[in-house]
Write a protein that binds this DNA or RNA. Structure first.
Lengths: 336, 336
DNA sequence: TCTATTTATACTCCAATAGAGCATAAGTAG
DNA sequence: CTACTTATGCTCTATTGGAGTATAAATAGA
């Protein structure tokens, strides 16, 4: 921009296959500028969300812009696109730390049916590799008790004053259900941000370290307790967290899961996709009841026999359901 | 930006007093560039949302940026700030149509307790002056049946082909409950966008007309059925619609109303604020039950006697309620 | 062929919640 | 003292949501 900032568009492209939610990443083209080579090695991790600077001459809307970029990089056809958030914090991007312009990124969520990737440099990665603390389908994720809670307690204690301590404690309660309370599956972004601030994800270290090496005031404390999850280039994981949060929130009241499924599917497949994204197990019979009585799906009369048991009827999404206020679109409660 | 776009920050500052939700506007400084004066008069309507270009040197985050701008222009202290959406459609801004750079705007929602405005050029305006079809507290708003539904039907008929007709019909059903169905109070932005496209708000005409005068391809059909509601400068009403939609959506599950109220309030005041924003009437006894049993508020033991009847107990917000998963934060159902 | 196992589907039970209304309390205005 | 207004307490009932039981229809292996 005229004022020395650059506007980028970034897409979180999500698909689910075999109960595993995945996201498209591309190889990062980031190189540390020559002038700074003696300061630092290139960051070791390169998973990058597909994106590009916005070209205002070419595209009438931002959404057209991301669509073109994301479809170009991945070779996929996006079935659903939704704006997430615009990120513009200083010092969370190595480009900027090495003297590049201040970068602003508009993040988008895109849903597709999983297919092999055409783009040379694009690949699918399991979503929960980036957020191992978010998948509660099998059991309470091990890192929560083993790493996160103790580290958060230490971080709370280490607050500079009482007011800060209280704030840290309240945020930890809300995001991670520290000291009892319920874990709210939707607060994905809050959890990531807290882990970043508490120094539990590598990106916090990277940003801090780079800032220091190029002589800028560190944005965050340098205390790194332990790195959790697979990192991403730039601010990628933060955008990804926003995407998962939006997805989980929307599952409850808008029928967007169907964008991830083939035209005909069994109720078990449907449930599997919902569970994989929401990160919890659901009560099968109630899920059934909700989908059918809620009018979200209708039977096709055809059957799938590769179920490993009794054949399952194939259903299709009832498009009219969108117009019916009763349909919650939804998710029943979690189930042990 | 380096690529000929400009990034602006815009705030929708909302307060409620006496059952009337209001929003801060400033006088627009927009002048038609000299070179184009012979083409057009300045637009007649000047209500403008407070905003300014983002200064990346000065502010570490976008949120710091809007805060400073909005507090500076209004003299208010913002109690709650939340990013809404980033708008970047071409041809929806007179600045751009007259040869200015492509403008991108990050919209924010801000909540305050209503106070007199210090800023010279800032003033409060009733929110529903801009969206007369959104206030269902007293009765079904007159413009819906008198203007909107007939005009939408004509617009649907006038579609260029069958596919477009179907799309227009489905969107109208969803947004305006055309042909029966329920009016969904939350779909504020969808309704505004539809009215814009159907030529029922003056902004559509303004954008089309300006585009034509400066020799650009018209972005929208020129058919203007009738102008509804008070217009705003630039893309203001669209951002305002996004703000109201977010507000209505959030009322249901996050306790944000309290940001609009004094520290102690009667349940009737609380209900009045919720009703004024959600645009519906609620069942008083059930609202009471939900607030108290849900643990959202606690009695102070003090009483307000200026009620016109039996004195009402004053309550305060229970901050801990945020941590309790049970509290819906919420709104009971509508009530005739 | 028979049996164990797996998955699908139907149905029931019960507790919690939400919508609606009635009744009473405690003020104010005439 | 009466009529009216708003506040507050409580009940009744239909709906919904969570959990469990029972039955159906396939496959795999003895």
């Amino acid at each position: 921009m005229a004022d020395g900032t650059q506007l980028g568009l970034t897409a979180v492209i999500v698909a689910v296959a075999g109960g595993v939610p995945r996201v498209v990443t591309v190889r990062s083209g980031f190189e540390i500028p020559r002038a700074y080579r003696h300061h630092a090695e290139p960051p070791p991790h390169r998973d990058t969300l597909p994106g590009a600077p916005f070209n205002p001459e070419r595209y009438r809307t931002l959404q057209e812009g991301v669509r073109a970029v994301a479809e170009g990089l991945s070779g996929l056809s996006l079935r659903y696109v939704e704006q997430l958030y615009t990120f513009g914090d200083r010092h969370r991007d190595p480009h900027e730390l090495f003297g590049g312009p201040r970068s602003l990124v508009v993040g988008y969520l895109a849903l597709v049916r999983e297919e092999p990737l055409a783009g040379a440099a694009a690949e699918w990665h399991a979503l929960y590799d980036y957020f191992p603390w978010e998948d509660w389908r099998e059991e309470r994720p091990a890192p929560v008790d083993a790493v996160i809670l103790p580290a958060l307690r230490a971080w709370i204690e280490a607050a500079p004053d009482d007011a800060a301590r209280t704030r840290r404690l309240e945020r930890s309660q809300l995001a991670f259900a520290i000291d009892g309370g319920d874990w709210d599956m939707e607060r994905v972004l809050e959890r990531y941000e807290l882990l970043y601030e508490a120094g539990l994800v590598v990106e916090a270290y990277r940003d801090h370290d780079l800032a220091e090496r190029v002589g800028l005031a560190p944005a965050r404390p340098a205390v790194i307790a332990r790195a959790l999850g697979r990192p991403m280039a730039r601010d990628g994981r933060r955008i990804l967290a926003a995407a998962l949060e939006r997805l989980r929130g929307k599952l409850k009241y808008r029928p967007i899961v169907f964008e991830l499924l083939p035209p005909a599917f069994t109720l078990n497949q449907l449930q599997g996709v919902v569970e994989s994204l929401s990160g919890t197990r659901l009560h099968k019979q109630n899920f059934r009841r909700l989908m059918i009585n809620g009018g979200l799906v209708e039977a096709t009369g055809q059957f799938e026999s590769q179920t490993g048991g009794r054949p399952a009827e194939l259903f299709r999404f009832r498009r009219q359901a969108i117009h019916e206020r009763t349909s919650t679109g939804g998710i029943p409660s979690a189930d042990a």
